[in-house]
Amino acid sequence: MKKTILPFLFALSIIACKNTENDTSSSEMNTETEVNASEEKDGIGNTIAMANGLDKFEEAEEIEFTFNVKIQDSLRSSRHWKWNTKSNEISLTEGDETTSYTKTDSIPEDKKSIDSKFINDSYWLLFPYQLVWSDANLTEEKEVAAPISGDTLTKLEVAYNSAGGYTPGDTYDIYYGKDHMIKEWVYKASGGDREMATTWEDYETFKNIPIAKMHKSEDGSFQLYFTDISVK
């Protein structure tokens, strides 16, 4: 099951993403390996996605989750989603209001605001699958110090192109261990004017799908976390 789920928005309470392509170069001493995800679906992108339960997710019919953002102990955002993965019918409950749409290749103008929120929130929830679902340049670098913990991990740069989507040209540096689970990542907005590192922690398994429920900045002032998760 291949889905096209593009970028995500970076704002005070929402950090965003994107499906794109970018040229990167290999570093000295051959510590970096560049792989184009569209050409090597059986490569490292697929390995990480499968370690995070992609094959099990493809059997799922529905997923629900609440996306929460807290800044300085103040809840800035809380959105509950219900996603039928077979029909791509998606509903959002935010406050007392529930709205729905069907995700297709052509989103009506009046549904683009809800679609951009869904893309943002689902990227945080299921980013490992984007290494298979979307096209990006992947550059792997072994034995790199993670930005928050300082642990020695493998870094994978996921670089998207500068055309199309809600936030073109974004880059994500993910840091993962030998189990191919993401431990930390750094989001870099196109143009280099915004950058944020957060953890990937508090993993819990839902129908054999591991999900990191908590993402925190180094000082803990920013927390993005998931509640009410269910997979059917």
Rank of each mutant, 00 (worst) to 15 (best):
D96V: 11
W124G: 11
K188A: 09
S87M: 06
H80T: 00
K117A: 11
S134E: 13
E201C: 10
E97M: 08
T198F: 09
D96Y: 06
P108C: 07
K188Q: 09
K112R: 05
E58C: 10
H180Q: 04
A145T: 14
L156K: 04
S149I: 01
I119R: 12
T198W: 00
F206N: 06
D121N: 03
R76E: 11
N161V: 13
L138H: 07
S26G: 15
S116Q: 06
Q223F: 09
N84S: 06
F8Y: 14
T167G: 12
L131G: 00
A146S: 01
N68A: 09
G53P: 09
T205S: 07
T98R: 09
E141T: 15
K232P: 13
T85V: 14
D110A: 02
I63N: 10
G95F: 00
T102V: 12
F10G: 10
S27H: 08
I229C: 01
T85E: 04
I5Y: 08
L125Q: 03
E58I: 10
I71M: 12
F67Y: 15
D173E: 03
I107R: 00
Q72I: 07
K216G: 07
P168F: 00
K18D: 15
E184G: 10
G177N: 13
A16R: 14
G165P: 04
S106L: 08
E40D: 11
I209Q: 02
T199A: 03
E58D: 13
T139W: 03
T154R: 03
E34C: 08
A145M: 06
M1T: 15
T93I: 03
S27R: 06
E61W: 02
C17W: 02
E89N: 09
N46L: 12
E218W: 00
T102G: 08
L156R: 07
I15E: 05
L6Y: 04
Y166W: 12
P168I: 13
K41E: 01
G43C: 00
S221W: 08
V158Y: 15
T152R: 01
Y160A: 14
P210Q: 10
V186H: 07
T85H: 00
C17G: 15
D110N: 12
D135L: 08
M1G: 11
D121F: 02
S87Y: 06
T85L: 14
F222M: 12
E204G: 11
